[in-house]
Amino acid sequence: MSEQNMIEVNSIEKRYERKIALSSLSFVVKKGELVALIGPSGAGKTTLLNLLASLLEPDSGELKVDGKPLSQYADRRQRARKIGLIRQQFDLVGQLAVIHNVLAGRLAEWSLLKSFASLFIPQEKDKAVDALKRVGLEDKLYERTSNLSGGEQQRVALARLLMQKPEVILADEPVASLDPARSEDILAMLTGLAKQENQTVVASLHSVEYARKYFTRLIALKNGDIFFDLPSHQVTEQQLQELYQLKELN
């Protein structure tokens, strides 16, 4: 694992109305790290990921990806090469065939004409087939995406990420709507593929068990602040209990 800093978060703050969502958060993620964000609901995990994906703007503080402030990734091609996003299953266009949802990962690189033509005669089909093979769905190439099960749809989203090949993958509750077996399947695939490509992953998860099993580092958020930030094997039961404890019990 190289020592290159992939994500630098420097005392960022975000509030909604008067409620503080994140209060002066700072951490650094190195290239190739697999980071899980854990913590109770409303702790700010999704807000943090949306800030990193530049779906939201921080009120103050600085976000750097690969040494450059996020605001400098205005060009959509550059940004797509750097940062990829995967969320719960309704991220795909259900009415399109699977292959087009997978090829959508190439849109940043394609001209308008090529992307339009591809809807009739799929372009770079080999790459799409390859990506679908890696997630085990090569037989569903021309199936309508909405006909697939939840787990299969999330695998299609993974195949799209494989086409996009971003250096950083942001995953917001990627398995929240899946049963335990499918969840493990998707997480194993996500982290496995990221390791092969030497990608950096930041994922928010509800399940601490999965976070410890599949990720190398856990960042726990509580009330918009970092509660602990440790390699997965160093996290103790005591800390986890305190993390999820209800306020009234303190």
Binding site: I83, L92, V93, A104, L107
Partner: peptide, 23 residues
């Protein structure tokens, strides 16, 4: 959500139209 995902994958507005809105 699907449109945001397309934007995140680097699609332009016209590409979003052909791959997201119109289908």
């Amino acid at each position: 959500e699907p449109i945001q995902a397309l934007r995140a994958a680097g699609a332009s507005r016209l590409q979003c139209l052909f791959y997201g809105y119109l289908p």
